[in-house]
Design a protein around this nucleic acid. Structure first.
Lengths: 152, 152
DNA sequence: AACAGTATGTCAGAATGCTGACATGAGTCA
DNA sequence: TGACTCATGTCAGCATTCTGACATACTGTT
């Protein structure tokens, strides 16, 4: 059982992956008793904050492909958590809405996830939280620009 | 095509997931031409920095289950990138080693991944990098403690 | 020495997500 | 109007990872 730090600990990329992995595990742990997966929860939370999001938009927001989100949405619709108009009004986009049942199901999950985030923020001061916010945004922007650069 | 920021952007957890997702995508993009997956690369990199790691230790380092790492290791062994002793000397642990071929294959991948990390660090000052390092470690520690707490 | 507890390697089945592909509708430009 | 491009929803097949399970080996306790 050797658990001393690897040299990779000096890599921000590795740290990022590690933190994300830990966060995901913690979320899965609190969502499992509710019979909910992380993507499942992300979908509901996105719909609560932005009613009318389409399948593709939800997929982008939950960091999965639109195909994956589609099967999830169909299940959620079948089980009565969300509704989608039978026919699209504009283009092929069919905006999704939470049902009261979906909203209720989200409430407990949202509280559970909030507790995880509070745990994660631990004893961080508001200043530290602000710098974390700032630094993560910097990384995201830098990586996104790299993608665009390679596309031309 | 509505791409304006969601309210969730104020959540550090969401930002973390976003950054991690972006980083993973960027790594996949540069590793694909080399016929290598992220877990594949992680395994080789870990072995280069810490020769003799066992299957389970590699799994933890690459953030996958030991079962997943096992199938990868078997493939890598079959293709001559790593070697493992046919019989364990102590317990069931069989330490893995990179072959020259594995080391060579890693070289290009390592350079590619380094370029991604440089891109990610973008115009970040050394101070910002240090705070990023610090803040991510804080989050990781807080989440890990939460896990231990729930185990008792 | 016997025991429980824990960690490991490994196999098999299940779940989840992804890639490929297709048809449809909107926007653009000649 | 017609051709081209792009985004969307959706289906099918594939890949990767995970969960469950088992045998084995070390560790510490009584």
């Amino acid at each position: 059982m050797s658990q001393e730090g690897i040299h990779l600990e000096t890599s921000l990329g590795y740290l990022l992956k590690q933190a994300s992995s830990e966060l995901r595990a913690a979320m899965e742990a609190v969502l499992r008793p509710l019979g909910m997966t992380v993507t499942h929860y992300s979908c509901l939370e996105l719909l609560a904050q932005r009613p009318g999001l389409s399948n593709s938009e939800l997929a982008r927001g939950a960091f999965v492909t639109r195909q994956s989100m589609n099967v999830l949405l169909q299940a959620l619709e079948r089980d009565g958590y969300v509704t989608r108009p039978t026919e699209a009004r504009v283009g092929r986009v069919s905006p999704a809405q939470l049902t009261p049942r979906g909203r209720q199901s989200l409430e407990q999950a949202s509280a559970a996830v909030r507790s995880v985030e509070v745990q994660m923020l631990g004893g961080m001061t508001p200043e530290e939280q602000a710098t974390a916010h700032h630094v993560l945004n910097r990384m995201i922007r830098a990586l996104r620009n790299a993608d665009e650069d390679s596309l031309e």
